[in-house]
Lab assay of single mutants.
Amino acid sequence: MEVRTIKVFTTVDNINLHTQVVDMSMTYGQQFGPTYLDGADVTKIKPHNSHEGKTFYVLPNDDTLRVEAFEYYHTTDPSFLGRYMSALNHTKKWKYPQVNGLTSIKWADNNCYLATALLTLQQIELKFNPPALQDAYYRARAGEAANFCALILAYCNKTVGELGDVRETMSYLFQHANLDSCKRVLNVVCKTCGQQQTTLKGVEAVMYMGTLSYEQFKKGVQIPCTCGKQATKYLVQQESPFVMMSAPPAQYELKHGTFTCASEYTGNYQCGHYKHITSKETLYCIDGALLTKSSEYKGPITDVFYKENSYTTTIK
Results as ranks from 00 to 15, higher is better:
residue 68 E to T: 08
residue 178 N to M: 08
residue 262 A to W: 01
residue 8 V to K: 03
residue 221 V to K: 05
residue 268 N to M: 08
residue 311 Y to G: 05
residue 202 G to T: 02
residue 304 V to N: 02
residue 263 S to M: 06
residue 138 Y to K: 13
residue 5 T to E: 14
residue 79 S to V: 15
residue 157 N to D: 13
residue 73 Y to K: 04
residue 137 Y to V: 04
residue 203 V to Q: 09
residue 145 A to C: 07
residue 283 L to E: 04
residue 191 K to C: 05
residue 88 L to P: 02
residue 90 H to N: 11
residue 68 E to G: 08
residue 241 P to G: 13
residue 44 K to S: 12
residue 154 A to K: 01
residue 215 E to M: 05
residue 162 E to R: 03
residue 281 E to Y: 03
residue 226 T to H: 10
residue 232 T to E: 08
residue 2 E to G: 07
residue 292 T to I: 10
residue 60 P to I: 07
residue 65 L to I: 10
residue 273 H to A: 06
residue 167 R to A: 08
residue 266 T to D: 12
residue 219 K to L: 11
residue 145 A to H: 00
residue 284 Y to P: 07
residue 91 T to P: 01
residue 2 E to S: 13
residue 42 V to P: 00
residue 187 N to V: 10
residue 29 G to M: 08
residue 100 N to T: 11
residue 79 S to W: 10
residue 129 N to G: 06
residue 293 K to N: 08
residue 165 D to N: 15
residue 174 F to A: 09
residue 18 H to R: 11
residue 116 T to R: 04
residue 211 T to R: 04
residue 197 Q to T: 15
residue 106 K to V: 03
residue 95 K to D: 13
residue 8 V to N: 01
residue 105 I to Q: 01
residue 159 T to R: 11
residue 62 D to F: 03
residue 286 I to D: 04
residue 177 A to I: 09
residue 215 E to C: 07
residue 72 Y to T: 09
residue 278 T to W: 00
residue 54 K to T: 12
residue 127 K to I: 11
residue 290 L to N: 13
residue 258 T to W: 03
residue 262 A to R: 08
residue 228 G to R: 03
residue 6 I to W: 05
residue 52 E to F: 10
residue 53 G to I: 03
residue 45 I to Y: 11
residue 39 G to A: 12
residue 160 V to S: 03
residue 124 I to V: 08
residue 218 K to Y: 05
residue 89 N to C: 08
residue 282 T to V: 13
residue 154 A to N: 00
residue 220 G to R: 04
residue 229 K to I: 07
residue 44 K to V: 10
residue 105 I to V: 10
residue 302 T to I: 05
residue 41 D to F: 02
residue 53 G to S: 11
residue 25 S to K: 15
residue 16 N to V: 12
residue 300 P to V: 15
residue 235 L to R: 04
residue 172 Y to E: 12
residue 159 T to P: 15
residue 151 L to Y: 01
residue 274 Y to M: 04
residue 213 S to T: 02
residue 234 Y to H: 08
residue 220 G to C: 01
residue 78 P to Q: 07
residue 4 R to L: 11
residue 269 Y to K: 15
residue 234 Y to W: 11
residue 310 S to H: 14
residue 178 N to P: 03
residue 166 V to I: 06
residue 267 G to C: 10
residue 219 K to Y: 07
residue 119 L to G: 04
residue 46 K to L: 14
residue 8 V to Y: 00
residue 264 E to N: 06
residue 200 L to I: 11
residue 146 A to V: 00
residue 185 V to T: 10
residue 57 Y to W: 15
residue 143 G to I: 00
residue 195 Q to L: 12
residue 113 Y to N: 02
residue 121 L to N: 02
residue 15 I to P: 00
residue 20 Q to V: 10
residue 310 S to P: 12
residue 129 N to T: 14
residue 104 S to E: 02
residue 263 S to K: 00
residue 44 K to W: 04
residue 101 G to C: 05
residue 127 K to H: 14
residue 175 Q to S: 13
residue 55 T to V: 10
residue 110 N to D: 07
residue 99 V to F: 12
residue 28 Y to C: 00
residue 309 N to V: 12
residue 143 G to M: 03
residue 248 P to E: 12
residue 96 Y to S: 02
residue 91 T to K: 00
residue 221 V to A: 06
residue 266 T to H: 09
residue 283 L to V: 10
residue 153 L to E: 00
residue 141 R to E: 09
residue 127 K to P: 06
residue 231 A to L: 04
residue 214 Y to M: 09
residue 19 T to W: 13
residue 306 Y to V: 06
residue 8 V to H: 00
residue 80 F to C: 00
residue 193 C to L: 03
residue 68 E to I: 08
residue 125 E to S: 08
residue 180 D to V: 05
residue 286 I to F: 08
residue 28 Y to N: 01
residue 310 S to N: 08
residue 92 K to P: 02
residue 104 S to V: 02
residue 208 Y to G: 07
residue 102 L to I: 02
residue 200 L to W: 05
residue 73 Y to R: 01
residue 109 D to Q: 15
residue 274 Y to C: 10
residue 208 Y to S: 09
residue 47 P to T: 01
residue 103 T to Y: 12
residue 91 T to H: 01
residue 42 V to I: 12
residue 155 Y to V: 01
residue 42 V to C: 10
residue 215 E to A: 09
residue 199 T to C: 12
residue 293 K to F: 05
residue 309 N to Y: 05
residue 267 G to L: 11
residue 181 S to C: 13
residue 73 Y to F: 15
residue 298 K to H: 09
residue 73 Y to A: 00
residue 6 I to A: 04
residue 224 P to Q: 11
residue 51 H to T: 00
residue 21 V to Y: 11
residue 116 T to F: 04
residue 220 G to E: 03
residue 312 T to A: 13
residue 287 D to L: 00
residue 298 K to W: 09
residue 127 K to D: 15
residue 139 R to L: 12
residue 123 Q to T: 06
residue 9 F to V: 10
residue 219 K to M: 08
residue 236 V to P: 03
residue 31 Q to E: 05
residue 255 K to V: 10
residue 37 L to I: 10
residue 226 T to E: 14
residue 81 L to T: 09
residue 310 S to Y: 08
residue 180 D to Q: 14
residue 103 T to D: 08
residue 109 D to F: 02
residue 275 K to M: 04
residue 304 V to Q: 07
residue 69 A to K: 03
residue 27 T to K: 10
residue 136 A to T: 08
residue 259 F to W: 02
residue 48 H to L: 13
residue 66 R to H: 08
residue 129 N to C: 08
residue 150 A to T: 01
residue 128 F to Q: 02
residue 250 A to C: 06
residue 228 G to W: 00
residue 197 Q to H: 12
residue 149 C to N: 01
residue 181 S to Y: 09
residue 190 C to I: 03
residue 136 A to V: 01
residue 145 A to Q: 02
residue 20 Q to Y: 09
residue 63 D to F: 09
residue 73 Y to M: 01
residue 309 N to I: 10
residue 91 T to I: 04
residue 89 N to R: 08
residue 163 L to H: 15
residue 165 D to A: 11
residue 73 Y to G: 01
residue 173 L to A: 03
residue 241 P to F: 03
